[in-house]
């Protein structure tokens, strides 16, 4: 499912966050979005899933501009999406098991035992075992993130949207998640949009990388394009230096 973002603009009050984004998410490939904190990565993907409405611009999915759709009509598209929120957004009134089972219960006619099997399987993929009865409040930050991942992939969606899936995980676990993203992409042809601050991981999983800066895409290309670029902003970002044209906003 190809997603074309054209001239997307969004501002909150006087804070202009997206300033004309043009970006194509290639079908069946993994696109990683990088950029400074607060540059609008999360805002961008919230537009893709219809949680935010742009001030201007279009998002074209399957040939239709989804920014014109009503919220109700979004439902059909969203069924193909699996979304991991930056802070997991687990339902804290439900156990881990119920959280992962939730989309299955709501959208499939599977029997409870079948659902439990799927839940266990998905939790195993993200490296969790025997936590079904725990509540989110009883989990560590990294565990929450992985439960969120398990919930996002529960329905085997065609499009995965992960907001910082590896932030807060140890390197080994981060690599496990990266492998998960690569495998699902490779075997199931899933389209993935991943937001990440993990540069080595990004180079490992990405087919395309887009870097946002000042509300625009400063560089879009393959990992090799990024390795070889002479753009000072991109270089400073990749080499993680505090000195340079990129400034930490006050």
């Amino acid at each position: 499912m190809q997603i074309d973002i054209k001239g997307l603009k969004k501002s909150f009050g006087t804070n202009s966050v997206l300033n004309g984004i043009d970006l194509t998410i290639e079908d069946g490939k993994t696109t990683v979005i990088v950029g400074q904190t607060g540059c609008g990565k999360s805002v961008l993907i919230k537009h893709i899933i219809g949680l935010l409405r742009p001030d201007a611009g279009q998002i074209i999915v399957n040939g239709a501009d989804i920014t014109k759709l009503k919220r109700k009509e979004f439902g059909g598209i969203l069924k193909n999406f699996g979304v991991l929120f930056q802070n997991s957004a687990l339902f804290d009134s439900m156990t881990v098991g119920e959280n992962v089972a939730f989309p299955l219960r709501e959208h499939t006619g599977l029997s409870p035992t079948k659902i439990m099997d799927v839940v266990r399987e998905k939790l195993a993929i993200v490296g969790l075992k025997g936590v079904e009865q725990l509540y989110p409040a009883e989990l560590s930050g990294g565990m929450k993130k992985r439960v969120g991942l398990a919930r996002a992939i529960a329905l085997d969606p065609q499009v995965l949207i992960f907001d910082e899936p590896t932030t807060g995980l140890d390197p080994v676990m981060s690599d496990t998640i990266d492998n998960l993203i690569m495998n699902t992409q490779k075997h199931l042809g899933v389209t993935s949009i991943v937001i990440s601050h993990d540069i080595p991981g990004t180079f490992k999983i990405a087919r395309w990388i887009a870097m946002l800066y000042k509300g625009k895409v400063v560089l879009y290309g393959s990992p090799d394009d990024f390795r070889n670029t002479q753009d000072p902003i991109v270089r400073q970002f990749l080499e993680r230096r505090a000195e340079g044209p990129l400034q930490v906003e006050a």
Partner: peptide, 21 residues
């Protein structure tokens, strides 16, 4: 309080992305 918490921790957004009203 419950719905407010769900709102600010994006649980309501999560519901929505799971195509649940």
């Amino acid at each position: 309080a419950e719905l407010g918490t769900m709102k600010v921790t994006e649980q309501i957004d999560a519901l929505y992305t799971m195509s649940i009203n």
